[in-house]
Design a protein around this nucleic acid. Structure first.
Lengths: 129, 129
DNA sequence: GCAGGTGTATTATAGTCGCAATACACCAAT
DNA sequence: ATTGGTGTATTGCGACTATAATACACCTGC
């Protein structure tokens, strides 16, 4: 099975740069503890094949993640998740989700929807998973 | 007062092209009936000044909106909202919001949050408006 | 007619993004 | 030492995005 496509949600047509989507989502996965300390990230080549993007695009995302101190580059082996970056606190993870909720609410308001209607849309998405 | 900044939510650093943000949000506002048939869109110059972006960026967004049949160009006057594009149905407006909800849920899951926690984040945003 | 308001076209510049193809440096397993 | 797996550097290319500075064509109101 293709585990990557289950974990990642890459949208080339969204306007958001692909390397940035990778960065954000890797950060989320690490923050949630799904990739614990010591875990090796998928190789750039594997990532590129499964997500149907360029190898260098993945590499650039990884380079940035290393610069941000989330991941360690192990020469000849791959990228290893560093320890100190796991956000165990649920409240902190919630705060990372907040920008997306704010975006959702703003759009809902523009569409003239009530709070209840906005929540209903979220609810339906949760059920459809 | 600055009505535009209250209606619009432009984020130049989001990665999403500015002209595209304008298009999406104008569509939302029209779909919600906040700009009824016959309403004149803000002028490109006003928009550019208040949102601190380039005039031509706004113009390109408007051109696309006209191509999509949402708006009519009145020479020497401005852009007028066309009638047949108003989405009166709440269900249809909800469906326009759905992609944002899906994005939110996917990110919440990546962060290891439960359905209840995701809803709580939305809830807090609704209260903070 | 004229001033001042529309949207638009043009040209040029700069930056970002993604892909392709190749080559390199490194490590692990054999 | 060889094979095959890491990530990376380089170069070139094309496309898209945004800005700037002008200039134009059009309509409205006085």
């Amino acid at each position: 099975m293709n585990t990557l496509s289950a974990l990642f949600r890459i949208s080339p047509s969204s306007g958001v740069p692909i390397y940035r989507q990778i960065i954000d989502q890797v950060r989320s996965l690490i923050a949630a503890g799904r990739w614990p300390e010591g875990t090796m990230l998928p190789s750039v080549r594997q990532m590129a094949v499964e997500l149907e993007i360029n190898m260098m695009t993945v590499s650039k995302a990884y380079a940035r993640l290393e610069a941000d101190g989330l991941v360690e580059r192990v020469r000849g082996t791959g990228m290893r998740v560093l320890p100190t970056n796991v956000v165990g606190n649920a409240a902190q993870r919630k705060s990372e989700l907040k920008p997306f909720a704010q975006e959702l609410v703003a759009r809902g308001r523009q569409l003239g929807l009530t709070s209840e209607q906005i929540q209903a849309v979220v609810q339906s998405c949760l059920k459809e998973e």
